[in-house]
Amino acid sequence: MRLQSISENAIMMTLPYTPDLSPYLIAFKQHLDNRSFIFETVIGYCTITVYFDPLRVTHQEMIRIITAASEQIQANHLDSTLHHIPVCYDNAYGMDIEHVMKKRQLSLQKVIDLHTTPTYNVSFLGFSPGFPFLTGMDQELTTPRKDNPRLEIPKGSVGIAGGQTGIYPSTSPGGWQIIGRTPIHLLPLNDDGPTLFAPGDQIKFYPINKIEYEQLQKEERIKYGN
């Protein structure tokens, strides 16, 4: 474990990455979040950053609290939500699926089967609001990011970058290999929270065709007004 002060009110803890590290970090976050002098805790793949009130607790006191917690926390079973997410893998939505097929020497059906078989874990929400970084992808699909990122990736695009997969919640630039698209709205901004997913949740993809995609997209637009 390594602790690093990154500002006057933030300390980052870094741990060696293992596939089962995410539940530990989530349990660690839950343990610290109930303390009134902590503003926020932010999870990464192998880090957790603690933002605290420096007027109420010093850096050294915060380091002692984090160190003590790291020795107490156990990665308990998480009561996570399982989301079933439809994806259309048609070329119209999977801009890079043929590239992945050629790169990995796989048929279209094999790519779909490999991508929809696992149950993925939401390790954390990343570079844009609500973007889930998902672990658990079959390594037969491992494909490097694009050499030249696109300036615009459509909302709902499902991509691969290295050994991970994820979903673009909104239209944005990006360099992931896009293999499909979901019509599901990932930023509901409702009473349950601003994002559909949370760290610790699980995701299961299932394939749909273009007609099913368009119908679900209409339903989502009626539901959310966009």
Score class of each variant (00 low, 15 high):
residue 92 A to K: 09
residue 72 Q to C: 03
residue 109 Q to C: 04
residue 127 F to R: 04
residue 113 D to C: 07
residue 93 Y to H: 10
residue 88 C to L: 03
residue 114 L to G: 15
residue 83 H to G: 10
residue 87 V to A: 05
residue 121 N to T: 14
residue 118 P to W: 10
residue 102 K to M: 11
residue 67 T to W: 00
residue 111 V to K: 01
residue 129 P to N: 11
residue 114 L to P: 08
residue 121 N to D: 08
residue 97 I to D: 05
residue 100 V to C: 02
residue 70 S to T: 08
residue 120 Y to C: 10
residue 113 D to G: 09
residue 73 I to R: 06
residue 122 V to D: 01
residue 112 I to E: 05
residue 89 Y to K: 09
residue 101 M to F: 00
residue 91 N to H: 09
residue 116 T to M: 00
residue 81 T to G: 00
residue 77 H to C: 10
residue 118 P to A: 05
residue 70 S to I: 01
residue 76 N to W: 01
residue 77 H to A: 14
residue 124 F to S: 04
residue 111 V to N: 04
residue 84 H to R: 11
residue 99 H to K: 14
residue 80 S to P: 00
residue 76 N to G: 15
residue 120 Y to V: 06
residue 114 L to E: 11
residue 73 I to P: 09
residue 102 K to I: 10
residue 86 P to F: 08
residue 85 I to Q: 09
residue 81 T to E: 04
residue 73 I to W: 03
residue 83 H to V: 12
residue 103 K to A: 15
residue 124 F to T: 02
residue 114 L to Q: 08
residue 89 Y to P: 11
residue 112 I to G: 12
residue 125 L to H: 11
residue 68 A to W: 03
residue 103 K to M: 07
residue 108 L to D: 02
residue 70 S to W: 03
residue 104 R to P: 12
residue 68 A to D: 05
residue 86 P to R: 14
residue 88 C to D: 11
residue 123 S to K: 01
residue 66 I to C: 02
residue 72 Q to S: 06
residue 119 T to N: 15
residue 130 G to I: 02
residue 68 A to G: 08
residue 81 T to F: 11
residue 108 L to Q: 13
residue 129 P to S: 07
residue 112 I to N: 12
residue 87 V to D: 11
residue 86 P to N: 14
residue 113 D to N: 15
residue 106 L to E: 07
residue 66 I to R: 10
residue 87 V to P: 00
residue 69 A to L: 08
residue 117 T to G: 06
residue 93 Y to D: 06
residue 78 L to F: 12
residue 78 L to R: 14
residue 66 I to G: 10
